[in-house]
Each structure stands twice: as structure tokens, then as C-alpha cells.
Design a binder for these strands. Structure first.
Lengths: 151, 151, 151, 151
DNA sequence: TTTT
DNA sequence: TTTT
């Protein structure tokens, strides 16, 4: 019954995050991330292969996304695969695979950052379970994180 | 353009792998893997949450899967997310997300293994790019792997 | 300044964990974990290569280790690299690299588990930052975890 | 006996790589990488915590490092923990833990790149075992890689 | 559809 | 839809 479901991505956002503020202080951000693989085929030609990932971020991470991420931003993202299932109007079973983001590190040089006074400050939430160092605009999901935004 | 697209899973197979031998010595195996997350909800009740992943393995890894994996097998798997896109009969765009497996380690105790004379032998292919230790029935994708099966 | 420092290991314990109960309810467990890489050399002979890792677990994870892990246990472990530095008696600078464990999943079949009344229950702490599914005896570090042990 | 020994780091180089060309076309590069963790302590003060990692890269990866990496470069690195053991002059057992790099992606914006004629080209070796997309100056270890450098 |  |  043990399980591990872990995804690690580094790529660029295809557009600005779509952020929804829900009732009860909940926030959710959705954004797609491109990871591009580049290789040479047999004839020696370079081939680019792009995979698009649907990211979903909640609460503290969603707020960071809203404030700092925009189309083109490069990020390191850690999370898990999550499949939404539902029935469409025709009664067909439909599924959509998303990446629920649990950790994020921004990889753009600071000067690219929007909304910032130009600082180099790092952001991480102080959850003891922050599963790793997460500086620059870097955060983990966690309890109390909502109040932990440094701005 | 840089990209990282990495998935790490530990779970159990939902059924025996489906293996297809294609022309030109190509082999592909498909199998679904369950990763179960277990937590206590607010009321203190234990809740199980199972996510199913569609794995795709090629060539050497497919042969290992065919020989060693079966319904219930526990495995560590490393790979990348890959989305297949096509149009269905109604002309609708359809997508299916799969995990292309690039590395695998069997986690069952040896005695569980099918088809084996009871050995404890480890299997790994000798690709220099084998990105890590992969013993027991453990293998990486790689060139020449097809000839590297230990049976 | 952004950083990611992540380690993922699957292996077996070299001996029982050494657990120390410190003041203020702090608990620390130390144990070494072997990861074995197996490959064929040029001559086709199988070669085993074992790397030993010094694991350090705190609080809830340490208690789980104390209760469930023993010499030979197979575990999946996630954490970060941490170097302790000090001066020895001769005034030499010394370093010791350890893996600070932040997530753990036991991979033994339940019947191997010591100290259990035979249950199959799964254990995970309910930190919202639990970065992934962690069932069976599986836990994450996290706030309040100390009180979250199911035994 | 199964094992997984995997390290994932994102950080900045502390100095230029030290590259040694050995006999038989072997090349090795050593460089230290800083991963910085940033958090707020109880008093709300920001604390930075830097961990230094000794990276070792071989052959194709070493050449890429020699050509593209320099002090301050930001990189994503994937590899395994490897402990060198030896006896010093006094006969004491000594150990040194290194990260053997098996995959690398440069994370600097292109304009930061040294030695380049301004190109945006991506580099990856075409090993089928390249365990993931590795574009920009991005490479995996692998067979034949030595001849696969695009410059 | 798995596993405990 | 991104990025170089």
C-alpha cells in the first residue's frame, strides 16, 4: 500500500497563471508549463520535443504564482500526479491529468521578476516539513503558509 | 528551452503487463501502477487515496516486465510524462497521459518473483548512462540492452 | 540564491537504528543505509557496488524508525544532504556528510514488520505539506507530527 | 539488493570547474555547487543556509562543464552519491563524499553563457537512455558521448 | 485494476 | 501556449 508519486519539472510557463480566489481564503492557480527535450535524430538534425503540463497550485503557492510568475517564467516545480475524473454532458467518462505542485523555485534572474523592488530576497515558508531548501521566490505548501507571504 | 521532465513512482501493478512484440525486434509493455496515499482526515479517520498511472515500457524494460512483473508486483519506476494526442472517430481531440519508464527496480522480495528458480540475482544493463544503481531485477533503458537480458 | 537539495534512496538498513531521546521531546535516529548497484563489467562478470549512507531522522520519523525499522529493512527515503563540520582534538577541520530524512516509506511486506500486532494500517502524518503519498508505515516530517503517531 | 541512489540539485557554482584531461581521452571536471536554503526563524528573521556539494563530472559532461560553466553559473544537476575512501599519510581512514553527475541542465539565460558566439543552440547527447529532456546546454552521460559534442 |  |  506504500506509495510514492513524485514529479519534478523544470520549464517555462506558456502564459500567465490563472488565479481564482475561492471562498474561505482558498486560492487556486492554474498554469501550463512546457518542458522541452532536445536531441539529434539519426540524420544529425536537432529535434525539439515539447511536453505541456497542467499545473495546479493552492493557497500560498497560488499567491506566489499570482505575484511572481508570468508567461515565460522559468521554474523548478515538484509535485504529484493527480487525475481528475468526471462525466461530460454525453455521459462519457473523462479524465484530466494535472500536476499538483507542492514545492516551487523560481529560476529567472531576479531582474526579470515582476512587481518587485528589485531585491534578491529569498522566500520560503517555515514549515518544518519544507522538504528542501526553497529560496529566491521559493516556497512549499504548508500549514500557516497563507500568512507567511513576505509581501 | 532547458527542460526537466521526471517522474518517480513506487506502487503496485493493477494487473499483468500487456506486452506486444512489434516488427524489428521492438517490444512494448503497458501496465497500470497504483500509488496509494493514506492520511487521516479531520475526524481522525484513515483515508486511502489511490492514483492510477499508465506505464509504457520499451524493449529491454518491456522484456523484463514480461518476464518478472505481474499483477500485484511492487516496483520503483523512474520516467517521464508523455502525452499521446489523437482525434477520435467524432473528430474530437483526445489526449492520454502516460509515464514512459526509463528506469525500474523491483521491490518484491525475491520469493515473490514468478518464473524464477528462486535466485537472488540482480539484473541491470551495463549502459554507462544507467543513471543509477539498479539491482535486483533492475534495469535502465539503453542501447544494446536488448541483448543484455540475463536469461 | 534559489536552491534544491534533494536525495532519493532505496536500500536496506545495515543495522538497527540508534535512537536518542533528547530533552524537550526531541528524538533523533541514526542508521546507515546501503544502496547496491549491480552491473556487468567488460568481461561479462556481475559486479556489485555498495554505497553506504548515514541517515539522520528527527522526531516523528525517528519514532517510526525506532518502532518499525531494523537491520535489513528495505526503505524508500527522501531527504537532503547535510554536512556537519567540526574540529577534532588535533584542531583539524573535519566534515561528515549525512542524509537528513524528510520522507520515508517502508517497502518490506508487512509480515516482516517487527513490534506490530499484525496490523496492516498505514501511517502518515497529516501535514498539508506532506509532499506526497506516504502510506504503509510511511511518514513525513512535519509540525505536530510528534503527536500524530498512531501507536 | 535493489537500490536507488539519486541526487537532484539546483544551485550555483562556487568557482570555475577544474578540468583534467587524462590519458585515453578521459576527462574529469570537479566543481563545487552551493544550494541555499532560506527560511524565517522563530523571531521572523530570514536565515540563509548554504550547503556545498563537490561535483564530479566525466567525459562529455566534463567537456560541457569546461566550455560552458563558470563561477556563478546556475545549474540543475542529477547524479548519485559516491564516497571515496583512502588512507592518509598517518594511516587514518579518510572519506570524501562526492556527487557523480549523470545529467545536467544549464539554467542561466543564454546571454550569460561564456565562450559562445551568441547561439541559442541546445546540446544533448543522443543516448537512448538519456533519462529525460536535456536541452540548452544540457547533457547526459552516455556511450559515444565523447564524440557527440556539438562544437 | 494493486497493495496492506 | 513557453523557452533558446
Amino acid at each position: 500500500m506504500a506509495g510514492v508519486n513524485k514529479v519534478i519539472l523544470v520549464g517555462n510557463l506558456g502564459q500567465d497563471p490563472e488565479v481564482k480566489h475561492l471562498e474561505g481564503d482558498k486560492v487556486v492557480a492554474n498554469v501550463s508549463l512546457a518542458t522541452t527535450e532536445s536531441y539529434k535524430d539519426r540524420s544529425g538534425n536537432r529535434v525539439d520535443n515539447t511536453e505541456w503540463h497542467d499545473l495546479e497550485l493552492w493557497d500560498g503557492l497560488a499567491k506566489i504564482a499570482e505575484s511572481y510568475l508570468k508567461k515565460g517564467s522559468k521554474v523548478y516545480v515538484e509535485g504529484k500526479i493527480k487525475t481528475d475524473s468526471w462525466q461530460d454532458e454525453q455521459g462519457n467518462n473523462r479524465k484530466k491529468v494535472k500536476i499538483r505542485v507542492l514545492n516551487m523555485t523560481m529560476l529567472d534572474s531576479r531582474t526579470d521578476s515582476p512587481n518587485t523592488g528589485g531585491g534578491n530576497s529569498n522566500y520560503a515558508n517555515n514549515t518544518s516539513n519544507s522538504s528542501q531548501s526553497m529560496p529566491s521566490p521559493a516556497v512549499s505548501e504548508g500549514p500557516g503558509e497563507d500568512d507567511d507571504l513576505p509581501f
